[in-house]
Design a protein around this nucleic acid. Structure first.
Lengths: 214, 214
DNA sequence: CGTACGTGTTACTAACGGTAACACGAGTCT
DNA sequence: AGACTCGTGTTACCGTTAGTAACACGTACG
């Protein structure tokens, strides 16, 4: 039970794991979220059971793969969120960073956003899987933390920040999803429109006149 | 080629279709979104191929089922959106209506929200499926229309309304999803928090003091 | 009586997630 | 040296699922 030896083995396993994840990445990028375990194993030059030994089940592989991209995206978003600029600029930079990311890699984005399963009926207590908070939640919690840290919301601010974190992330996500499919305007316009929404322009705008009999 | 006879047949087929949809509804409500075609057929007292003759494939059945619930939900939302009250009250009523709906039937909600597929690789030109706009889009478009009709946004207002429609729906959805899972507060509090967000409270709040060296 | 047709079935295929059982090679202990 | 373990890899399988082909029954119409 030598520690260094164990470290060697673990290091080797980690490297293999990374290779497998990269292969999975390629397949998912090529075939979309429907990539089968067989296809991923073939791309990696091995066979299925090895994937299962490394990741437990498909959910585990999904979680590992999602974590990679999620971490990368969250790093970019943190950079935008923490920039030394005023709040509106930070919000716009964050929105733009997110939209640029999903614009650059729509396949990855689709993969990340569609959990595609939520809980088998049988086999409760399955140890793997389940710990994959599906990106939106992580982004929401992270944004909530930033809001709570940097914005003075008075009493009850912590809960308010959480609601807002998840709400804003959802707004960004849904608008981005729609925009990615239809491309009705430029990215900059979308960013401006969303920031305007968050800045209360909906509340400030006037009613439209001309309702019949009203 | 008698028209009345054909109508009779079609009417019978429609009734059968409705029965099948109700059976599918029960199964989905009981087993969650993972309900198999076999289980649905069994619940309806028939066998699989009949389902396939009626709905083409699973996507078709999903689409038909989703349309039912989506239409029902959209009717409720329209009622809240069109109420003769001021804008803030309408927004809160709409949010509350949506949240009450997902709170009352989480299983249906989960089913509707997880498309769970997006496009097979083989068999291009598959005639069924694909026409199932996944609820969020429909809600977004509908809300966009209401905003465009009732709020004066000046030039470019139509596009702005669409962005906002999808954005607000996404906000509502994500916050609702998170809230449904964690229940961190009452529904009324959630509604208030989200409405506050839309009313620009994020922009109005002050910075938090105490950043080290800033 | 036969023929077309709608409605239903059984029995099958293909693909997928997941697993058991076996095979090989390297280091280790006696 | 020989047995023992252990990591790495395989083949071959199981159970379930979406989807389909082929057949069987009843009924209206010529």
């Amino acid at each position: 039970m030598d520690t260094t030896q164990r470290t060697d083995q673990q290091r080797s396993a980690d490297r293999r794991r990374r290779e497998l994840l990269e292969a999975a990445d390629r397949v998912v990028l090529r075939d979309g979220p429907h990539a089968s375990m067989n296809a991923i194993a073939a791309e990696a030059g091995i066979t299925k059971p090895i994937l299962y030994r490394h990741f437990g089940d498909k959910g585990g592989l999904y979680a590992a793969l999602a974590k990679r991209h999620t971490d990368a995206l969250l790093d970019s978003l943190r950079a935008a969120l923490d920039a030394p600029a005023d709040r509106r600029e930070r919000v716009e930079a964050t929105l733009d960073t997110y939209l640029a990311a999903i614009e650059a890699r729509p396949q990855v984005y689709r993969f990340l956003m569609h959990p595609a399963d939520g809980g088998q009926v049988g086999d409760p207590g399955f140890d793997v899987g389940k710990h994959s908070v599906p990106l939106l939640r992580r982004m929401g919690e992270e944004l909530a933390q930033v809001i709570e840290d940097r914005v003075d919301l008075g009493p009850g601010g912590q809960q308010l920040a959480r609601v807002w974190g998840h709400g804003i992330v959802g707004m960004m996500h849904a608008a981005g999803d729609w925009w990615l499919g239809e491309r009705p305007c430029s990215r900059a316009e979308l960013v401006r429109s969303l920031a305007d929404l968050l800045w209360g322009r909906l509340a400030a705008a006037g009613d439209k006149v001309g309702g019949p009999g009203f």
